Amino acid sequence: MSCAAAALLAAAACSSSPRKFEPICVPGTQELCYSGPPSTAAVGACKTGIKTCDDDGMDYGPCEGQVQPTDELCDTPADENCDGKVNEACVYPGCASVPAGSPSGVYLSDPGAAGAIQPPAVYCDMETDGGGWTLLYNSVGSETGTTMPFWDIPLLQRFGGKGEPSLGANVYAGWLYLHGTEYRDEAEDLEGKVVQLFHARTTGIEPETLRFKSPELVSGDSEIYAAQFAAGWSSSDFDGDTSTSNCSEQYSHVTQHYSACWVYNLGSDADTPLDDSGWGPHLQSAAARRLGLYADESGYTRVRRISRWVRW
């Protein structure tokens, strides 16, 4: 037999022998496992599972206990599709309809239930006083001087919207006045302390004047309630406050609810100069101290934020 033939026979004999496999794991040991997209593991409702090494050590059993992404549900506070957002594609009549237990944040809202093609985004407070509060306006102090001009809102734009819903930005969602029956104002001082200014109820609003119908103080500071809610409303081109002058025109064209004229202002100072470098929200220093907020030595102190929330 030639050497070549002998080599072929040897190779055939080797190929017909049973192959031996080495174990890949120690029987009974366990490891974490997950079959969904890696970026969704341990995000939202998604959970990793456990797989157990088979008795022969040749493979692992099924991944038990894992939860993979599913379609987002609108009636739960969970992030079922595990993208780090809760109910981001869901449309609610208002924040009070967002499932209890959902985090505060941005949601889509269509109060008129008219099936808006592009429902507006709103910021919901899901924690304070039972949750379900929608951010109607938010004035944030800024060293850039951009806040004060933001609040020059003419009469014809009283039900419009400006800014993106966020507690860190200037926001105006005037269309919410057409739906609200419960209101809450709050302020944050320069040291980060947040207090509720007042909580009020109303049966609606007069659309032409923005005067509240049958306003009622539920709790909070009665002076601020009287000055910023129970009286009138003014813009630079509409005098609806109870002062003999137009409070908006007098105070840097800032549009808001006034009496004669204000305890807080969304954009103007009452100390000279009124623009205060365009900072934005100011609160009467006496009122700030009364509420336990930081106040400087002036008559009207800067605050970091003044917000109005609405619920219905």
Rank of each mutant, 00 (worst) to 15 (best):
C25H: 09
D189S: 02
Q228C: 07
V91T: 13
A288F: 13
D276Y: 05
E31D: 10
S234K: 02
S142A: 15
M126Q: 15
P281M: 07
P154I: 07
S236R: 10
S234A: 10
G145R: 03
G65P: 01
C95A: 09
D241M: 00
E297D: 14
G141P: 07
D152L: 06
R184I: 10
E249N: 02
C46D: 03
Y137T: 06
G160D: 14
Y172G: 03
M148S: 09
K51Q: 15
G36N: 13
P103L: 07
Y60H: 06
Y137D: 14
A116N: 11
G232N: 09
V310F: 09
Q118T: 12
A227H: 12
G192W: 08
D56K: 03
L108Q: 13
S222G: 03
T134M: 11
V43G: 00
P69H: 11
D296K: 00
T147G: 11
V171E: 11
T48G: 09
Y183C: 07
T52M: 08
P103S: 09
G36V: 01
R290V: 02
L283T: 01
P154G: 08
T203S: 14
S102A: 14
L108A: 07
S298T: 15
Q118C: 03
F238D: 11
E191P: 00
V26S: 09
A200D: 13
G220S: 11
K213I: 14
I224D: 15
G84S: 10
P165Q: 09
S259G: 00
Q157P: 00
N265C: 07
Y137C: 06
D54I: 00
L178V: 02
